[in-house]
């Protein structure tokens, strides 16, 4: 049994999606523009893409690069961010470097990286790595900086050495903040994945999208946009589940009511 308010809450996202598709369909029919296919046209193109073996290989290759870039970035950025948060000297050294890299769109580095490393997996993975690193470093840094000194003292009194304190106190204490950074990083990984493939056209989901655009297959273009968007939603939802499990201890006991009712 669910209350009417609860049912509305559950149905709201579905209704929003249906509403968007209806508006799209009506607008497309009204405009009668070749480069703006109907919602129905785009959706019916999705099975064609996912049924095509070559497209599927391309999409999976994209996801593999994304996973590698994201994984490597997380493995490097978390320790670096934590060290920066606990050592003023390390922070003073890396901060200016990061401030320079931060505002540069990572995709803008793609042409140079392609010159050095070619158009293959390594160049694209590196761009994803760069895109993911900064938010993860930043949040790890902030999380580590906020760890209560007395908590570290308590650990030190129990005999934990500095490295143990970093791994066994700073890391778990900063985990909620770190995972917030990782969540941002995950979305950025998807974005940089597509943009890198847009610049280095060779394979991948971005390549399918832009090839279709070149050939005027607009329903395929929009179908790919839907697929990429759906991948983003799924990855984010999976990550959010994992995150919520890992930091259950830090969540507020009762959810804040989001509505004004």
């Amino acid at each position: 049994m669910m209350s009417p308010a609860g049912m509305t809450k559950r149905a709201a996202p579905v209704l929003a999606c249906i509403g968007l598709l209806v508006v799209w369909q009506v607008a497309s029919l009204a405009l009668k523009n070749d480069s703006f296919p109907t919602a129905m046209g785009a959706i019916t193109a999705i099975p064609d893409i996912l049924g095509d073996k070559e497209s599927l290989v391309n999409i999976l290759a994209s996801l593999r690069r994304m996973a590698m870039g994201f994984g490597a970035a997380v493995l490097v950025s978390i320790p670096l961010g934590l060290l920066m948060g606990r050592s003023a000297a390390i922070a003073a050294f890396f901060n200016p470097l990061l401030m320079v890299i931060y505002p540069v769109p990572k995709a803008a580095l793609m042409p140079i990286i392609m010159l050095w490393l070619g158009v293959g997996d390594i160049a694209k993975t590196l761009v994803i790595f760069l895109g993911v690193s900064l938010p993860v470093i930043y949040h790890s840094f902030e999380g580590a900086k906020a760890v209560e000194e007395k908590m570290l003292w308590s650990g030190a009194a129990m005999g934990l050495l500095p490295v143990q304190r970093l791994v066994r106190i700073v890391l778990p204490a900063a985990l909620p903040e770190i995972l917030t950074g990782c969540r941002t990083g995950l979305v950025l990984a998807l974005i940089t994945m597509i943009t890198s493939e847009m610049i280095a056209r060779q394979s991948g989901a971005g390549n399918i999208l832009f090839n279709a655009l070149d050939m005027g297959q607009y329903d395929t273009v929009f179908a790919m946009i839907i697929i990429v968007g759906a991948m983003g939603i799924c990855l984010d939802a999976i990550f959010e589940r994992v995150r919520a499990r890992l930091v259950r201890w830090s969540e507020p006991q009762f959810d804040m009511p989001l509505s004004f009712s």
Binding site: E148, K150, W153, S154, A173, L175
Partner: peptide
């Protein structure tokens, strides 16, 4: 030590 701030490990 026992601190005013408790300093428990929240995880």
């Amino acid at each position: 030590p026992v601190f005013q701030e408790f300093a428990l490990f929240p995880w």
